[in-house]
């Protein structure tokens, strides 16, 4: 009963967040003063080097309006939009890759982004937390200070500087990794898998390094304060080993805020994807989003932004659902 109620409540919140988020993506561009169709027509005119006749322009306008669901009142548009997005994940065709549908392009790019960013986020979380735990638990030893300094040094470096430095060092000076991603679409084979790993290694490395500095610092701070809790002192007086105290007492308790942090960073991986994928020309959602912005590809923008909303909301839902496993005090509430 308690569990069902808990899950039910979270699911309702999830659906509500998605609904509001998708509605905002619908309305926000329509509040902008410029009209995408005007822009598109102007683009055609300047490309053709001549003005279209008013009739031709009106015709194009009508076709485009139909194609992009801009017919009828705002309310009708909204209903149509919601129907298409919710039941078909259909955002219409892409402007820049016409006539391929946006959903198809997203489906192609998504596994790349998810694969790269989920892996690196999880690795840097695990690594950062373990190092942070050691640095915090043994905070009055010299080695621990060294580990913390590692975090302090890495954390403030802006991502693009870190990434460019690594590209310069590891792809240009020493040609260990490719400068930009060259992955050929091919059926999944051992060779293809190797090619993917080889091409993803450098972006993955930059993401791991950029991510784990913060994890070291926050876990270290949490571990230091958790170590002073009476239950850790009492565990020491019971004669528990250092290992037991560090993992079962300090880590299990300091972990709770870090799980939330992991959820939030998993939710925002598409933001992280933007810069990484641009720097490495990595064929993921970030690059798609960037191209869409550059080309005024509204449908594509709708699609990628909606994906981001779904990702953040899903990550929050998943964390809400698994959080009771980490903190029993949530479970029966």
């Amino acid at each position: 009963m308690g569990l069902l109620h808990y899950v039910g409540q979270r699911l309702i919140t999830y659906v509500l967040v998605l609904f509001i988020g998708i509605s905002i993506t619908f309305f926000l561009p329509r509040l902008m003063p410029n009209d995408p169709i005007d822009g598109y027509i102007a683009q055609i005119q300047s490309r053709a080097g001549q003005t279209l006749s008013p009739e031709a322009a009106a015709e194009i306008r009508a076709t485009l309006s139909e194609l992009y669901g801009l017919e009828g009142s705002l309310f009708t548009q909204y209903l149509n939009y919601m129907r298409r997005v919710v039941f078909g994940f259909d955002f219409g065709p892409s402007f820049s890759a016409f006539p391929r549908p946006v959903s198809e392009l997203i489906a192609l790019a998504l596994p790349w982004t998810l694969g790269l960013l989920t892996t690196t986020t999880v690795i840097s979380w695990l690594l950062g937390n373990l190092i942070g735990l050691l640095a915090g638990y043994y905070h009055n030893r010299r080695l621990a200070t060294g580990l913390e300094v590692l975090g302090v040094l890495i954390y403030p470096i802006p991502y693009y500087i870190l990434a460019l430095t690594l590209i310069l060092l590891l792809a240009y000076t020493w040609k260990i990794f490719p400068i930009s991603t060259t992955i050929r679409p091919a059926p999944l084979s051992l060779a293809q898998l190797g090619s993917i790993l080889y091409n993803s290694a450098l972006p993955a490395l930059t993401l791991v390094i950029a991510g784990f500095g913060w994890n070291i610092l926050s876990m270290k701070a949490l571990a230091v304060s958790t170590k002073e809790e009476p239950y850790v002192s009492f565990a020491r007086l019971k004669g528990t080993s250092d290992g037991t105290r560090m993992f079962r007492y300090v880590f299990r308790n300091a972990l709770l805020p870090q799980v939330t942090a992991l959820a939030l960073s998993l939710g925002t991986i598409f933001n992280g994807a933007l810069l990484t994928e641009m720097l490495f020309s990595y064929p993921g959602l970030g690059l798609l989003m960037r191209t869409a912005v550059g080309n005024g590809d509204y449908n594509m923008l709708y699609g990628t932004i909606t994906m981001t909303i779904v990702a953040v909301a899903t990550a929050a839902l998943v964390i809400d659902l698994i959080y009771p496993l980490f903190d029993p005090r949530i479970r029966y509430r």
Binding site: Y231, A235, L237, T240, R252
Partner: peptide
């Protein structure tokens, strides 16, 4: 052995009591 002052804060909140009975 030792009986601490505050039993609430002297037990690990996220681990079952039986584990805390034998982990030393």
């Amino acid at each position: 052995s030792y009986i601490p002052q505050s039993s609430m804060s002297s037990m690990n909140p996220v681990v079952r009591i039986r584990e805390q009975f034998v982990d030393f």
